[in-house]
Amino acid sequence: MPISDWFKAREGRRYTVASTDKAADLPDGVWLKCPSCKHTLYQGALNDNLSVCPHCGHHFDMPAYDRVLALADEGTFDETEALVSSLDPLRFSAAKPYATSLASAKEKTGLAEAMITGRALLGGHPVVLGAMDFRFIGASMGSAVGEKIARAFALAQAEDRALVLAIASGGARMQEGMLSLMQMAKTAAAAERLSRAGVPYLSILTNPTYGGVTASFPVLADVILAEPGALIGFTGPRVIEQTIRQSLPKGFQTAEFLVEHGMIDGVVPRSELRDTVGRILDYLCAQDVPEAAVGAVCAVPTEDGEA
């Protein structure tokens, strides 16, 4: 060993050598920067705050399991259909093979698919609860997501549980071609059946919700909520600007914009979601809907509560 190396080795033993790489040698994801207010945030503190920036209230993406845990009454979430996952029916390989995208999404998220569903209690009400996970191929809807949603609707109807879905999605999963477009029809058909059965359905639109997913089951809910600042629309702003060269106003397609245009019922901060959904369910689940009122235009209760 040359003498210079010996000195280096001794220094290594005596001091913690600062990494020569540009990035600090910290475990991944301990610190991160809020994209909105630029504050540096400790991941643990962010997790304790429902992934909402404590400084500016920016709502970060929320992993699906964190989402259901944040909504369900403690310890009540019981997952269903956990094994339903995607195949590669078209052997889609443009740019990047779909099979590779699926494998890396599974590894990255630990999920089998972009959506989880299950039974739970919410504000004491038995519900079917579902959440989409944007980290999994942009929570796009292919056959497996469509099937899980259709089964969630069917379960809600079979067990007379309200359905609560937290949505996030880039749209249809184009790697499954027409099979994924048809999931829009499939999930809308399922939503229509639940509605006809008179079982309550609430959707919570989170950032981002776009494309073929916006144009199907989420917006067919009885009550539609959205998180602050969430971007929600059918066609994304970049496509609009590129295709028809229209410049778009500030705040376009935000949750607040949608309230103004009459498309959703309200913007609810994440910290208040559980209570708000619970309060709405208190109304919609409280009384037995009289048989005659299901599907009727309007049920008018008489004084003794009978319709």
Binding site: S216, V219, L220, T235, I240, T243, I244, G262, M263
Partner: peptide, 20 residues
Amino acid sequence: PGLEAEERGQGWAIAENLAT
């Protein structure tokens, strides 16, 4: 794909037709 279509609920209109 346009501003007015989004303002008037393009996604909502499609979804309602699918259900119908």
